[in-house]
Design a protein around this nucleic acid. Structure first.
Lengths: 143, 143
DNA sequence: AATTAACTTAGAGTTAACTCTACAAAGGTA
DNA sequence: TACCTTTGTAGAGTTAACTCTAAGTTAATT
């Protein structure tokens, strides 16, 4: 199967401008053109785009993605570099997930405070009540 | 305790430029100034900065953070908005974590391919071997 | 007291990643 | 064939979030 730039844009949820921009930045050296100059995307190209999306959405800048694609074009001599790149990306993503978890805890705590405050209709009253309750728990044991 | 802009910058791992920029964008309306015009950060201010960092690192744009701070300044009338904002952020972070996991799977798969290719010294040979192996497994059962 | 380091404001410059405009050419539809 | 949509190129403009410069002031150190 083959696809026009517009079809691919729709599939990926981006504009045709973005795809042409990616090409200009050297991210799509594999995409062929028809006799009259129209870009023709194949299913293999869609596979590449999926990888690009993966790297982009895990925070790799377009330059980094281009580096990967350049390495690919150079063949087996760059296998190690490409492996190292994926290993580094793996670590980055794992760290990112850990950071997100940590922040999620903070957000959940804030949510509990705000739920209390909304119930009371007052931030100060809710915080006061919370403080008194904590005091009680400290003196008589929890629950 | 109180801190200079330079001390705070160091603690947060940003530059003083960045902190002044945040102030200009309305993110630090709580920071006081000394008689001679120097910014004086308190421990409470550091608490605010920690919240700002949390929202920023979970992908909220500075404008969104400013909105939250503005709501805070308006008092109890905006408790619900602030709660809703944290609930939305919670969902965003959870979705982000799920997406990262999905991409991590793809990256791990790529790593396994590249580890094989590096061992063989050739991408094509490794893929060929992998294909044959899969064929065998299909015929005689796994492991 | 002199020097050096950190601070001040105002404003210009940078970077990444789009995003849009203009206008010509190609392709699909009635 | 006429028309309308899509695509093409080249290049300008936008946005967010810094990042830096200049020129002067304040604070800390020797």
């Amino acid at each position: 199967m083959s696809y026009s730039i517009g079809q691919v844009a729709k599939m990926m949820g981006v504009t045709t401008h973005t795809l042409r921009y990616y090409e200009k930045e050297g991210l799509l050296p594999f995409v062929r053109k028809s006799g009259s100059g129209l870009r023709v995307f194949t299913d293999t190209d869609l596979g590449w785009l999926a990888m690009i999306e993966c790297l982009k959405e895990t925070g790799m800048p377009l330059k980094g993605i281009k580096q990967y694609i350049d390495w690919y074009q150079e063949g087996d001599a760059t296998l190690q570099q490409r492996l190292d790149m994926f290993l580094a990306q793996k670590q980055k993503v794992e760290e990112q997930i850990a950071l997100y978890r940590k922040h999620l805890d903070k957000i959940n705590y804030k949510i509990s405070l705000y739920e209390e405050a909304v119930r009371q209709g007052s931030w100060d009253k809710a915080m006061e009540a919370r403080k008194l309750n904590e005091e009680k728990e400290r003196r008589f044991g929890k629950k």
